[in-house]
Design a protein around this nucleic acid. Structure first.
Lengths: 240, 240
DNA sequence: CTCTTTATAGTCGCACTGACTATAAAAGCT
DNA sequence: AGCTTTTATAGTCAGTGCGACTATAAAGAG
């Protein structure tokens, strides 16, 4: 933008906001996908998204699309994070499309209703999210990487949890996203030792689906960043 | 993009790639700015950048702009990182412009030659980079934040250094970007204990501008991420 | 030759961490 | 009821990374 506008022919671009919507269902990471109803990639699965309207920012467009695809009424409170922008010239065979990709984290997965253009939407386990349309495989992988990395030094994991949660639930979020088992007493110690990460719900509340001792409930704290960070185990084998 | 193209009127957008080019000059962090030659913001300073051409990705456009503004012949090897995309509808008073912002790190600051449209380009100390055109103040601040944060857990700091450097020079890079003084023996211990961060140049090479014992030379290692990370001191005061 | 300057080596105590054991409080079973 | 299973929570202990600090080495300046 520092350049002279009139000396550069600026071809018009179409701008879309695409979403990698992640959630946990029964301890398994799922992603929201839509089935494409037309060419190209007709019948293939793709990330939900759509064109940015003239009066919208990409963030606003992403929230609107998310509400449309999931039928969520309250899209305001959930976590939406801009991932990066994909702008390779041949991403779409028909036209020049620049896509601003977002990652969204949902605590309770609503059943998606079919998209507004009759394309059906479904929750798909992350591991079985087969080859997707366009470069959406890469976008999805980038989203997973980013979310996993931010779990280490931010309180982002609480975005997967309901307003009140147990430390066991929080630990399962970490284990699912990282794909690693964590030691329960140590996880507990670290979380409680990190100021502002979680705050206990004073009413000696409890909640357990089944057996065992009832667990104390916590809410997300005010801290956005974690000090000290909660590093993944063997995040990288030391190349000695 | 998962949506039906034809059911959405997609207004054409102009897409630009803007750059926050950072470098160190005499131990002071500088940013490359251009003076705008026309309205809006005529006479104001702005980040260099320009329109993405029809056959380019935003990354390619950023490298081209960088080469044009700095006169660098070898733009291939240096670090270019996509920051985020700014798409608020009123960013530019004349038209709808979506900007993909990049941060670039240079080891040796070349003298910039005037931009191709007669706008002059200059290195400006980061602290005195006054109010910039458009939302470039925010882009520049975001770039600084991102670079500072990535210094903690990546080997990005070596992108500010020449191919061979001393640990003192690397430490000065950290101190300048973070704005903090670091203990020299401890910094040395941490860097050398992090596998793949730096590798010594075997020929007992030395190099010092002035007095004192000559320092050993190192090259950047192969590790992209740092384990353990090199955390800034008092990154956040513990709220007890 | 001594002083200053910079690089490098080493020491010490604290805090954090991983691995592990122990206790508490619930549900299920016989 | 008594026992087992299950889950939550508390505590222990050794290794290690780290901040603060001291000591030595190797150069130039006077």
């Amino acid at each position: 933008m520092g350049m002279d506008y009139d000396k550069y022919a600026h071809e018009p671009f179409a701008v879309t906001a695409d979403l990698a919507v992640l959630t946990l269902r029964d301890g398994v990471l799922h992603v929201l996908l839509v089935e494409r109803g037309q060419e190209p990639y007709q019948g293939h699965w793709a990330l939900p998204g759509g064109f940015v309207q003239p009066d919208e920012s990409a963030e606003t467009a992403a929230r609107r699309e998310l509400a449309e695809e999931t039928g969520l009424s309250d899209v305001s409170g959930l976590h939406l994070e801009q991932l990066r922008t994909y702008s390779e010239p041949d991403r779409d065979p028909r036209m020049r499309v620049v896509t601003v990709a977002f990652a969204a984290l949902l605590p309770h997965p609503p059943e998606p209703h079919g998209g507004s253009d009759a394309a059906q939407a479904r929750w798909v386990p992350y591991d079985t999210a087969g080859p997707l349309a366009f470069d959406h495989d890469r976008i999805l992988a980038d989203a997973h990487d980013r979310v996993g990395a931010k779990f280490e030094y931010t309180s982002l994991a609480t975005a997967f949890c309901p307003p009140e949660f147990t430390l066991g639930e929080l630990q399962q979020v970490y284990e699912t996203v990282w794909g690693t088992a964590l030691d329960r007493p140590n996880f507990r110690r670290k979380v409680l030792a990190t100021p502002g990460f979680v705050v206990p719900v004073p009413g000696a509340a409890r909640l357990t689906g089944g057996r065992g001792k009832p667990a104390a409930l916590y809410r997300a704290g005010t801290a956005a960043t974690l000090h000290p960070p909660l590093l993944r185990p063997t995040s990288e084998g030391r190349p000695a």
